[in-house]
Simulated scan of single mutants.
Amino acid sequence: MKLMTETLKVRFAEIGSQGEEENPLIIARFFNPCGPQTWYATEYDPETRICFGYVTGMGFDEWGSFSIDELETLKLPFGLTIERDCYFEEIRFNDLNE
Rank of each mutant, 00 (worst) to 15 (best):
W39Y: 14
R29D: 01
T42S: 15
T7G: 10
E14F: 13
G35A: 09
F88L: 10
W63P: 09
R11E: 10
L76H: 00
R11S: 00
I91L: 02
Q37V: 15
K9V: 11
E21P: 06
P24C: 00
E43Y: 02
G79W: 02
Q18D: 02
D95G: 14
I91G: 01
M4K: 04
Y54I: 02
R92N: 09
C34F: 11
I50A: 05
M1K: 14
T81Q: 12
S67D: 06
L96A: 08
K75Y: 04
L74Y: 09
E6W: 12
T38I: 12
Q37R: 15
R92D: 08
E43L: 04
A28T: 04
W63D: 14
R11M: 06
E14D: 09
E43R: 05
D61Q: 02
E47S: 14
P33L: 10
E22N: 07
V10D: 07
G19H: 05
D85P: 01
G35D: 03
M1C: 11
E20S: 10
T81R: 15
R92H: 13
I91N: 05
M4Q: 05
P46K: 06
E89M: 12
R29C: 04
A13K: 13
Y87M: 14
Y54Q: 11
P77W: 05
L76R: 04
E90D: 06
P36G: 10
E43A: 04
A28K: 01
T56V: 09
I27A: 03
C86K: 15
L74S: 05
L74G: 03
V55G: 04
M58W: 13
S65G: 13
A13N: 13
E6T: 10
T73F: 09
W39G: 00
F60Y: 14
R11K: 12
D95K: 14
I15P: 03
I91S: 04
T38V: 14
E6F: 13
Y40W: 09
I82A: 06
E98V: 00
